[in-house]
């Protein structure tokens, strides 16, 4: 029971996580479904050349700024490789 209390996310963290996901699709005007499709397509292409962990791969669109000047949105893909050899 004690573990459960410790594990439970605070509403602050829940809000942060929800916003981060929400804003990704807001910013590029693309739905979470579309992000999922992009992710699957990337996985398909990479899988041709190496074995990757499709379960834990992540893609994200971020908007970073330097001194208030906004850069263009960037697509980051985090794809764990399981085996380089084919």
């Amino acid at each position: 029971m004690f573990k459960n209390i410790l594990k439970r996310k605070s509403s602050r963290e829940i809000a942060k996580d929800r916003l981060k996901i929400l804003l990704i699709s807001d910013r590029v005007n693309c739905s979470p479904e579309m992000m999922e499709m992009i992710k699957n397509d990337i996985a398909k292409v990479i899988s041709k050349y190496m074995k990757i962990d499709t379960e834990s791969m992540e893609i994200q669109i971020t908007k970073t700024s330097i001194k208030g000047r906004t850069k263009n949105p960037t697509l980051y893909a985090n794809i764990p490789i399981l085996d380089l050899k084919q």
């Binding site: 605070s10 509403s11 602050r12 809000a15 942060k16 981060k20 804003l23 700024s65």
Partner: peptide, 18 residues
């Protein structure tokens, strides 16, 4: 914020990055 029930100013700045 102290109770963990509101995003801190750092959280908000982090998200909006302005």
């Amino acid at each position: 914020i102290k109770r963990g029930d509101m995003m801190s100013s750092d959280d908000v700045v982090d998200i909006l990055s302005i």
